[in-house]
């Protein structure tokens, strides 16, 4: 374990995680809203926002999957030290982290069961940037329409078609994040 693995976490977990959760809650309950967050400095290639989501929500009871370039020894050490989350294969993951391409194929993640749709994975999708230009979003949390820069539309449409099953996404770029729950209908711009 490197020294870096021990740094970059919360200095005051109760209040920092509370503020981080409110930002994540805001993002997921209002799809299309982009929020700015602070508090975590994870090792590269993780974004601050992705690191913060894990610090806030992951622990020993939530298996995490690292996809593609996100799966480095430094990241593994950092997550293990700060959250205690077990690192697992995609199908067992509660949280999966990586770029959109690295997470493919996206149908390998847990989507819940008809009786327990909450037993579905949350994907933390690392994007180069986040903006409100892109495909149209509608559904719960959105007044009329919203737009968000998504990496594609087909996979999100397929995921929404499974509702109430399906995975939920937190899109992260730098210190900003946005939410895309399975309830959101995605249409090409």
């Amino acid at each position: 374990m490197t020294h870096d693995a021990l740094t970059g976490g919360f200095s005051d977990a109760p209040t920092q995680s509370a503020r981080a959760f409110r930002a994540i809650l805001d993002a997921l309950s209002r799809p299309g809203t982009i929020v700015t967050v602070t508090g975590a400095t994870p090792p590269a290639p993780l974004s601050q926002a992705a690191g913060l989501v894990l610090l806030t929500l992951a622990d020993g009871t939530t298996p995490v999957h690292l996809a593609g370039a996100a799966d480095t020894p430094a990241v593994r050490d950092w997550i293990t030290f700060h959250t205690g989350a077990p690192l697992v294969a995609a199908a067992q993951a509660t949280f999966a982290l990586g770029t959109w391409d690295a997470l493919a194929p996206h149908d390998r993640f847990a989507i819940g069961t008809p009786e327990y749709p909450d037993r579905a994975a949350t994907l933390i999708v690392e994007l180069p940037s986040l903006s409100s230009r892109g495909p149209q979003l509608s559904g719960p949390g959105i007044r009329d329409r919203a737009t968000l820069s998504l990496p594609e539309t087909a996979a999100f449409k397929a995921n929404h078609a499974l509702f109430p099953l399906g995975f939920d996404c937190i899109l992260t770029a730098g210190n900003r994040l946005a939410g895309l729950p399975r309830s959101t209908k995605v249409e090409s711009a």
Binding site: P14, L28, P117
Partner: peptide, 29 residues
């Protein structure tokens, strides 16, 4: 602790709230 509950408990509740938001009206255990 801030807001009474320990951090592990708050994380568990927070995850349940987020899944509840993702599936409106569904009761998350």
């Amino acid at each position: 602790n801030f807001a009474y509950l320990d951090e592990q408990t708050k994380r568990m509740i927070r995850r349940a709230i987020l899944k509840g938001v993702a599936v409106p009206g569904y009761q998350v255990p």
